[in-house]
Design a protein around this nucleic acid. Structure first.
Length: 841
RNA sequence: GGGCGUUUAGCUCAGCUGGCUAGAGCACUGCCCUUACAAGGCAGGGGUCGGGGGUUCAAGUCCCUCAACGCCCACCA
C-alpha cells in the first residue's frame, strides 16, 4: 500500500472523520453468524437520557469501550448495543419543566395540542395521551444528543442494536416477563402501607429511598392513664396524635411494667389506646415509650403489623390530612381539634397541633430542636409519607430467607471487578426488608398488563386479575379490552377495569439482557449473546439495576445474566467533591472535548483504576493529548523511510533488544486487559512508548537515515514496533491510532489482531543492549545538560565502566550510541557502572 | 450504629504475591530551535509513604489500633 503520511499531522477533526468512516464501513457491526464462544457480549447501561450530560456519563462508558475494542481485536465478535432509558419519572419531570405542563388523566386527548413556546406558570394541564406524546418527542431529541456524544467519544457501539426502554419491543419484553413472574407466583399485589411521594403521588421502592438530615423537634406530650396518671411520650410528629393506635415500650423497661396491658387516652382527641410491649422500643430514646401512629415511619408499620393494631390512616395520597373527621374520634372537643388540622399538609398540621397541645397543657416544655434523618424519594423534594394502597410486588428475598440465600449465592458466583464491589451487593440483599414494589401511579412507562373483573357492586376483584395473551403484548389495559369482554363493560358492574398503573423503570431496565438480546423474539440471537460477558455499571445502582437484573434472570433463566460485573468508580469534581446539580459543580463533557479532544478525555477516563473514585483532572487530559500528538509525530518519523520492510531483515542487536522489551510489554498489557484493567494496560504501553521515542528513536535515527542492511533492520524494527504500539493504544485512543494505521495499512486497526509475543518470535535479543545503552545515552545527555550546552555538542571522550555483561551489551550497540551521543569513540573499563563524558571544545 | 474504600512529592496518581538508594505526569528550575515533534525535547531539585504499635534478616507493601475524608447500609418514637 502506498504511504500517505501527512507533512504536518494533526488531531483536529479526527473524531468526525473516523466516526463517519466506521459507520459507513460497518466496522463495529455485530456479526450474528458467530457462535456463543466466539462472541463477547456487553450489557451496556442504558443512560437516562432525560438527565443532563456530565462527566460521569462519559467516564464509565469509555472504560467499557476499551474492553469492547480490546476483545474485538483479540478475536471476539463483540455484541455492544446501546440502550436509552427514557421510561419513567425523570422523563416526566423533564417534560413538565421543559414545556410547563402537568398530566391530568381525567382530561380528554386533544389532537391539536401544541405545547406553549415558553413554560407557563402555573403549568397547563394536558391529557395522559398528550403528555405521553410529549415525553416521546422530547426523549427522541435527547437521544440524538446522547448518540452524538457517544459517537464523538468513539464508543464502538453497533448502532443497529439500539433500543429504548419505552419502545414497543422493550414494553413487550417487560410485560411478558411480568406475566411470567405472575404466573409463577413471583409477583403479587397487596393492599398495604407503602412509602409515598406526595408530590409525584406515587409509591416508591426501598431501592429508591435516601435519608436526608432534616431539622425536627421532640415534643413532650402527655397521655392520661385510667387512674388519672400521666404517661409522657416524645415525638417529632405531634400532628399524628390523632391517628395514634397505641403506646409501646420495651418489655424489660422497669418504668412501664405496671401499665402494660392497660389503656391510656390521647390528649385532645380522647381516644382510648392500649399500652403494649415490643422489643423494638428503645428505652434510651425519648422517655422510652413511643406512640404508634398509622403511619409515621417504618417502625410504626412494623409495630402495627406485629401487634395487630387497627388502621387509622389520615394522611391521603395528596399528602394532606383527610377533610372529614375520622370515625374513631368521637368526643366533641376531639372533633373540633381535628377540624383544625383537616386538609392541611403535615408541616402545617404540626404547627397547629403544637399550638393546640400547648393551649391544653398537654405539651410539656418547649419542643427540643433536633436534626434527624428523614426518608425521601431520591428524586423527591418532600419527606415521604406512608399511606395505604394496593401495589404490585416482585418477591426479592426481602421476606423469604431461602430466596435471600439463593440470591446471595448468585452474587457470590458473579465475578466482581473490582472484587470488593461484591460486598455492596451482599449488604444490600442482607438488608432487604420487603419485596420489590414495582407499580407506580405515573404515566410514562410500561403499563401493568392486567385488568380486574368487577363484581355485582362494581368493585374490582384483585385476587383474580385478567391477563392478556402474550401474543397481544404490549398492551395498555386502560384502552385495550380483555378477551371475553366488550369495551362497553369497562367500569360497569360485572364488567372489568384496567390497571391504571405503570411499572417502575427498573422493572423494565432489569431486563436489558433480554431486551438487547431479543429474548424469545429472536431466540437464535439470544442464545448467541446470553448470558452476557460483562455488565459494566456505576456503584450507586448495584442495589437497583444490578440486583434487579440478577433477580429477573434468576426467575426467568435460573442463571446469572452475566459472568462479570465491572463496576466503575465515582466521579468527583476537580476539587474532589461529589458532583451534583444542587451544588452547581457539574462538569459537562462537551467543552472539554472541544478543548482537549475526545481522545484526551478518553485517556483521562482510562487513567482511573477500575472502581477507583476519580476526579475530573484537566492535567491528565493534557497528558492524554500530548500522548496522542506524540503518536502522530513518532509515527511520521517511523514511516518516513520508504517501503515496508520484512521483519526477517531485523538483525541489529539494538533492534532485537528493543523488540524483546516490547514483547514483554505486550504480555503485560494483555494480562491487564484480560483482567479488565484498562488502566494498567494503558500505563505499561504508555511508559514503554515514551522510552521508545526518547531513546530508541534517538539511537536508531542516524542508522535509519542511512542505507544498507543495518538501515533496513532499523526500518523494519520501527515499522513492527509502531504497528504494535498502535494496536496497544487502539482500545484507549481509537482515533489517532486509526488515523496512523490508515497511512500505511489496509482496513481498520480496530479489526486488526491484538499483538501477541508470538509476533516477535525469532526477532528478539538481549534486552540489556537497549536498557544499558539508554542509560549511557542518558548519562551523556546529563553531562551536556550540566554543561549547559546543546545536545549536538561533540563528545571528545566517552568512557563506560561496568561489569562484563554491561560492557558487552553496550558494545553491541556501539555505532548507534556513538551517533546518538555524537562521540567518535567509546572506551570500556571493568568496574562499577558509570559513564565519564568529556565534551569537545 | 454497621460495612466498604481512600490516605505515597505542592497537585493528580502508580507501586502486583514484602527485597537493591520509593516511581510517573503536572507544577517548579536549568539548558536546547537536534532534519518526527518548540502548545516540543533533554536534564534537575523535591517525599520521616496519615499517626502509633507489632511480625520479619527486610514493610509504602502483612497484622493490630487510632484518625481524617468519601461512599453504602440501618427500625429516623
Amino acid at each position: 500500500m502506498t504511504r500517505n503520511v501527512p507533512e504536518k499531522p494533526s488531531l483536529d477533526d479526527l473524531e468526525a472523520k473516523w466516526d463517519a468512516r466506521w459507520e459507513s464501513d460497518g466496522t463495529f457491526r455485530f456479526d450474528r453468524t458467530k457462535t456463543r464462544d466466539e462472541i463477547f457480549s456487553i450489557d451496556t447501561p442504558p443512560p437516562t437520557v432525560s438527565g443532563s450530560l456530565h462527566m460521569g456519563s462519559v467516564f464509565g462508558y469509555v472504560q467499557t469501550d476499551s474492553h469492547a475494542r480490546y476483545r474485538r481485536m483479540s478475536g471476539k465478535e463483540v455484541f455492544y448495543p446501546m440502550g436509552w432509558d427514557d421510561n419513567g419519572l425523570p422523563t416526566e419531570r423533564r417534560v413538565q419543566n421543559y414545556y410547563g405542563v402537568r398530566c391530568d388523566p381525567t382530561l380528554r386527548y386533544d389532537p391539536d395540542f401544541i405545547p406553549p413556546e415558553t413554560p407557563p406558570d402555573p403549568p397547563v394541564s394536558v391529557s395522559r395521551r398528550n403528555f405521553i406524546a410529549l415525553c416521546h418527542g422530547l426523549t427522541a431529541e435527547d437521544e440524538v444528543v446522547f448518540e452524538n456524544l457517544w459517537r464523538t467519544m468513539g464508543l464502538s457501539v453497533d448502532w443497529k442494536q439500539s433500543y429504548a426502554t419505552i419502545d414497543e419491543h422493550s414494553q413487550r419484553t417487560s410485560q411478558k416477563a411480568f406475566l411470567r413472574n405472575l404466573s409463577r407466583d413471583e409477583a403479587y399485589s397487596q393492599d398495604a402501607p407503602v412509602l409515598w411521594d406526595v408530590d409525584f403521588k406515587t409509591a416508591v421502592a426501598q431501592a429508591e429511598l435516601e435519608d436526608r438530615e432534616r431539622p425536627g423537634a421532640y415534643h413532650r406530650i402527655a397521655f392520661r392513664g385510667r387512674d388519672g396518671s400521666e404517661v409522657l411520650i416524645e415525638t417529632t410528629r405531634p400532628e399524628l396524635v390523632c391517628c395514634c393506635v397505641g403506646l409501646v415500650a420495651h418489655p424489660d423497661d422497669e418504668r412501664y411494667q405496671a401499665i402494660f396491658g392497660s389503656t391510656v387516652t390521647s390528649p385532645l382527641f380522647e381516644v382510648e389506646l392500649p399500652v403494649m410491649a415490643h422489643h423494638l422500643a428503645d428505652p434510651e430514646k425519648g422517655s422510652g415509650i413511643a406512640m404508634i401512629c398509622t403511619w409515621g415511619d417504618t417502625t410504626d408499620v412494623i409495630w402495627w403489623r406485629e401487634l395487630d393494631l387497627p388502621t387509622r390512616a389520615v394522611i391521603q395520597q395528596n399528602g394532606r390530612f383527610q377533610t372529614e373527621v375520622p370515625e374513631w374520634i368521637v368526643g366533641k372537643e376531639g372533633k373540633a381539634a381535628y377540624r383544625e388540622i383537616s386538609g392541611l399538609y403535615p408541616n402545617q398540621a404540626q404547627r397547629k397541633m403544637a399550638e393546640l397541645l400547648a393551649e391544653s397543657g398537654d405539651l410539656r416544655g418547649e419542643p427540643k430542636p433536633i436534626t434527624h434523618p428523614v426518608k425521601f424519594y431520591e428524586k423527591g423534594d418532600r419527606p415521604l409519607e406512608i399511606v395505604s394502597s394496593r401495589q404490585w410486588y416482585i418477591r426479592n428475598g426481602g421476606r423469604d430467607e431461602s430466596l435471600r440465600q439463593t440470591l446471595l449465592e448468585q452474587g457470590n458466583h458473579l465475578d466482581w471487578v473490582p472484587d470488593f464491589m461484591g460486598v455492596r451487593y451482599k449488604h444490600w440483599v442482607e438488608g432487604l426488608n420487603g419485596d420489590w414494589l414495582i407499580s407506580r401511579q405515573r404515566f410514562f412507562g410500561v403499563a401493568i398488563p392486567l385488568w380486574y373483573p368487577l363484581d355485582a357492586e362494581g368493585l374490582p376483584d384483585y385476587s383474580a386479575p385478567i391477563t392478556p395473551d402474550e401474543s397481544e403484548l404490549p398492551i395498555d389495559p386502560t384502552s385495550a379490552t380483555p378477551g371475553g369482554y366488550q369495551e362497553s363493560q369497562r367500569g360497569q358492574a360485572g364488567g372489568f377495569v384496567g390497571d391504571p398503573d405503570i411499572m417502575d423503570t427498573w422493572a423494565t431496565a432489569s431486563l436489558t439482557p433480554q431486551i438487547a438480546g431479543h429474548w424469545e423474539d429472536d431466540p437464535d440471537l439470544f442464545d448467541r449473546v446470553f448470558p452476557m460477558d460483562i455488565r459494566p455499571q456505576g456503584p450507586e445502582i448495584i442495589r437497583t439495576w444490578l440486583f434487579s437484573t440478577l433477580l429477573r434472570s434468576y426467575y426467568e433463566h435460573d442463571q446469572l445474566p452475566w459472568d462479570h460485573a465491572t463496576i466503575n468508580g465515582w466521579i468527583l469534581d476537580p476539587d474532589r467533591k461529589k458532583m451534583s446539580k444542587s451544588i452547581g459543580n457539574v462538569v459537562t463533557p462537551l467543552p472539554l472535548i472541544e478543548e482537549y479532544g475526545a481522545e484526551a478525555v478518553r485517556y483521562w477516563a482510562c487513567n482511573g483504576r477500575p472502581g477507583a473514585d476519580t476526579a475530573v483532572d484537566y492535567g491528565v487530559m493534557k497528558i492524554g493529548r500530548r500522548l496522542a500528538v506524540k503518536i502522530l509525530n513518532a509515527s511520521r518519523f517511523a514511516l518516513s523511510f520508504g517501503d515496508d520492510v520484512a521483519p526477517e531483515t531485523i538483525n541489529q542487536p539494538l533492534d532485537r533488544s528493543m523488540l524483546s522489551g516490547l514483547a514483554g510489554v505486550v504480555e503485560q498489557a494483555t494480562v491487564a486487559f484480560e483482567k479488565y484493567d484498562y488502566a494498567k494496560a494503558l500505563e505499561v504501553a504508555e511508559s514503554s512508548f515514551w522510552g521508545w521515542t526518547d531513546d530508541y528513536l534517538e539511537l536508531v535515527k542516524a542508522r535509519a537515515y542511512g542505507k544498507g542492511p543495518e538501515a533496513q533492520s532499523a526500518h523494519a524494527s520501527l515499522q513492527l514496533a509502531l504497528s504494535v504500539y498502535l494496536r496497544l493504544f487502539a482500545p484507549i485512543l481509537p482515533f489517532v491510532t486509526e488515523e496512523v494505521w490508515s497511512w500505511w495499512k489496509e482496513g481498520s486497526v480496530h479489526r486488526a489482531v491484538w499483538p501477541s509475543p508470538f509476533e516477535f518470535e525469532g526477532l528478539t535479543g538481549d534486552p540489556n543492549v537497549m536498557s544499558r545503552t539508554s542509560e549511557v545515552l542518558s548519562a551523556v545527555r546529563r553531562a551536556k545538560s550540566d554543561a549547559k550546552t546543546s545536545m549536538r555538542t561533540e563528545v571528545a571522550s566517552l568512557t563506560v565502566s561496568g561489569d562484563s555483561a554491561t560492557i558487552a551489551a553496550v558494545e553491541r550497540a556501539r555505532p548507534d550510541l556513538l551517533e546518538a551521543a555524537r562521540a567518535t569513540d567509546v572506551a570500556f573499563v571493568e568496574g562499577e557502572f558509570g559513564v565519564e563524558t568529556i565534551l569537545a571544545g
